[in-house]
Amino acid sequence: MINLHYRKAEKSDAEPLIDIYNSAFYDDYVRYGECPAYGKTVEQMENSIESFPKEIVISDNIPVGVISVEEKGDGIYYIGCLCVVPEYQGKGIGTQAFRHILSVYPDWKKFVLITPADKEENIRFYTEKCGFKGDGTLMDGNVKVVKFIKER
């Protein structure tokens, strides 16, 4: 198991967060021609940090991912981002990060997220590693996405 720690992102982290997001979501941007997590400006990222709390996932003092969770109230949380840069994927970091999310929000009743419907690796991760269930599809821009829910 890789030793990870997590640090709350601050506005001063905007540029490193942009680097992580751009690395993690570049393939989506190329694949779909759009990706809301890719290509943010510093100002957009600073606003996002204020609006949606983020934690930086760190391994051996290297930022390797980001977690962003929005509280919706009544124990319901929306996972806006759980990403790991490509060089660190497949090492259990995402699974550990999700377990961290569960510990940070002990009052959770339901987690909700969306991911592209044709991203089989994401679907396997969320269903097999994290215990989510599919809850239908919808369009996000020109991308068909699957809504996932994990309930207690």
Rank of each mutant, 00 (worst) to 15 (best):
37 A>W: 03
7 R>T: 11
65 G>E: 01
28 D>A: 07
49 I>L: 07
81 C>R: 04
36 P>T: 07
30 V>K: 03
1 M>Y: 12
75 G>E: 13
81 C>H: 04
68 S>D: 05
51 S>C: 11
61 N>L: 14
4 L>C: 15
37 A>D: 01
18 I>E: 01
35 C>W: 03
79 I>P: 13
55 E>F: 12
59 S>K: 15
14 A>F: 07
2 I>P: 15
18 I>C: 04
69 V>L: 09
61 N>M: 12
77 Y>E: 08
20 I>Y: 06
66 V>P: 05
66 V>S: 10
81 C>Q: 08
19 D>F: 10
53 P>Y: 10
58 I>A: 09
81 C>D: 10
73 G>W: 09
5 H>G: 05
29 Y>V: 00
22 N>F: 06
62 I>L: 14
62 I>Y: 12
39 G>F: 04
8 K>D: 10
13 D>P: 13
18 I>W: 02
11 K>D: 10
41 T>D: 10
44 Q>M: 13
31 R>H: 03
48 S>K: 12
56 I>M: 10
57 V>H: 05
51 S>H: 11
43 E>R: 05
33 G>E: 05
47 N>I: 08
71 E>C: 08
16 P>D: 14
81 C>F: 03
17 L>H: 03
38 Y>R: 00
36 P>N: 12
25 F>Y: 06
3 N>V: 11
39 G>V: 03
62 I>D: 13
51 S>V: 04
7 R>P: 06
32 Y>I: 01
19 D>S: 14
48 S>D: 14
6 Y>N: 06
40 K>G: 08
35 C>M: 00
57 V>W: 04
53 P>F: 11
67 I>E: 03
33 G>Q: 06
11 K>M: 09
27 D>L: 00
76 I>W: 07
49 I>K: 06
75 G>A: 14
69 V>Y: 07
81 C>K: 02
31 R>N: 02
10 E>F: 07
68 S>Q: 09
52 F>D: 13
76 I>A: 10
